[in-house]
Structures are given as structure tokens and as C-alpha cells.
Amino acid sequence: MSNTLNILITKNQDQILEKWLSLRLSFFSKQKQSLIMTQKDQFQNPIRHQLQEGLKDILENFEKKGEKFKEALEQICRILAIQDFPPSKAMALFYELKEIVREFTKKTGVGFNAKDWVEFNSAIETMTLEAFDCYSAHREKIYQLKVDESKNKAFMLLKKAGI
């Protein structure tokens, strides 16, 4: 059952997380580096904090999935869905893990077999597709909010008119 690559992730979680996070944060800033990456306070830099939390949960639960994994996907997609980059870039986040792990194996020379790699790939793909569901759901939510807000603004008038 145990996949060498999954073990690799578990073992090197901190480094992988750091790499992943900084790669992703660079998407937010149109500059190479910005406060978004360096400011570490939970409240003064919520993007970094919540992404870090989410990515960490994903790595921790990468193999067993479960509720926490799902929540983490939600949390991350909630942030991605309202940013100024297109969905393709938002979703790239989840593929990035593949690249990071690949680099990691090269660097550390950890051996793994073909089956591991196939399995790992498919896990990443499944995760990305799940994330896409989340992302779309949040986009839909934005549109729902727009509708709700227009209704609420004139709530009494609509009520009076019997709508």
C-alpha cells in the first residue's frame, strides 16, 4: 500500500510545504517577492496564513484524504476563486506539487518504481479535479451573492411589491 512518494511527502513535509507555498505566493504578487511572502502574522497576512494552513493539511492527509483534506481544498479554493488570475492558473497550484516532488526525488535520489509514479500522478489528478469542483462552487457562490445582495438592498420594496 505504502507509496514511496507518499512516504517522501510525509518525511519531508516541511520543506515541501515551504517550496509549495512560496511558489504559489509568487503568483499573487506581480513582483518577484513581496510582503505577501514575508509577512508571517496570521491576521496581518491572511493569504499566507490560510494558504499555509490549507497546504499543510493537504500534505498531511495526502494519502488518507478524508474530511480535513476536503476542508483544506475548500479553504484554498476560496482564496483562489476571487483572485485576479484565471482559473487555469489557480488550478495549476495542485499540479505544482508534482513538480516539487519530482525535483525533490532528483535532489535526494530517492528511488521509486513506476507504479508509485503512476499512482502518485493519478492522486494529483484526482485532487485537482476535486479542487476544480470547489473552485467552481465558489465562483457560483460569488454570483449567488450578487443576486442575494441586489435583493437584500431593496428588501422592503420587493416585500411590499409582493415579490
Binding site: L35, T38, Q39, K40, D41, Q42, F43, Q44
Partner: peptide
């Protein structure tokens, strides 16, 4: 003042 927030924080 932000230094009172726990955790290492370079920016502060």
C-alpha cells in the same frame, strides 16, 4: 506593537 503576536515574525 505587533510583536506581541506569538510566533516568529521577521517583518515585525
Amino acid at each position: 506593537k505587533a510583536e506581541l503576536v506569538p510566533g516568529p515574525s521577521l517583518a515585525y
